[in-house]
């Protein structure tokens, strides 16, 4: 299963959702944000090297725990040197080797958002309660529809008391999982840990578990 975590607007928590979703699905998370990588990385081959044909995708995967990850380089020169379309075969190769893949997509609506949606079986849309984030999510949902990536779930991230999940579900046309605005989420991400490992039993951990369960239910149920 290939799952694209996308959202349109920057800063809504796509990387956090992708990382925690991968942790709960026991999937490999691919940092597809070619220009502004966000997930933890170390030395060694990365997605820039893979896209430029200098490394094998499997060779670039850092196996967990806590989460297996194919990191992305952080230089603009590296982002420019690769062939973006090679992202498709790279993601497929990781899926063949590891099973499930979660792709952390960048903000925007360009091909680096479209290519993960193109190769994905389904997508998860991440938004915050803000109007601008929901508007951008609507735009990405259209793109996902055109590229045949079914919408498995909407994540309403950093939801405070004023958030209205029902309104977001109605606007985006899919069930919503709410992730609370809780410091444990940012703390865990900063520490390079999934929330359920750093702060098990918290509402945020429960939210990510329930998201993974819902995605699994939708995607496994619809697989050929």
């Amino acid at each position: 299963m290939i799952l694209a975590v996308t959202g349109g607007k920057g800063g809504v928590g796509k990387s956090t959702v992708a990382y925690n979703l991968a942790a709960n699905l026991d999937a490999v998370v691919v940092d597809g944000d070619l220009g502004m990588a966000d997930l933890p990385a170390d030395h060694g081959p990365d997605l820039h090297d893979v896209l430029a044909g200098r490394a094998d995708p499997i060779e670039a995967v850092r196996e967990g725990p806590p989460v297996s990850i194919l990191p992305c380089g952080r230089s603009l020169a590296g982002a420019r040197a690769g062939d973006p379309t090679a992202l498709v075969s790279a993601i497929e190769a990781v899926e063949r080797a590891y099973g499930d893949v979660v792709v952390d997509s960048p903000a925007g609506l360009r091909a680096d958002v479209g290519l993960p949606l193109y190769v994905a079986d389904a997508c998860v849309l991440v938004t915050t309660p803000s109007e601008s984030a929901v508007t951008d999510a609507v735009r990405v949902r259209e793109l996902a529809r055109e590229l045949d990536a079914g919408l498995a779930r909407v994540v309403l991230n950093r939801a405070d008391d004023g958030a209205n999940p029902d309104a977001v579900a109605a606007t985006l046309g899919a069930p919503v999982t709410t992730v609370p605005d809780d410091a444990v989420v940012a703390d865990a991400q900063a520490a390079g840990q999934p929330v359920c490992r750093a702060s098990p039993g918290t509402p945020a951990c429960q939210a990510f578990r329930s998201l993974a369960d819902a995605v699994e239910r939708v995607c496994r149920g619809h697989r050929p």
Partner: peptide, 17 residues
């Protein structure tokens, strides 16, 4: 379902800086 990755790239624009 004939659109391939290259067509996606052409339609949406090269994301490289």
């Amino acid at each position: 379902a004939g659109e391939d990755a290259t067509a996606v790239l052409q339609r949406l624009g090269d994301p490289s800086p």
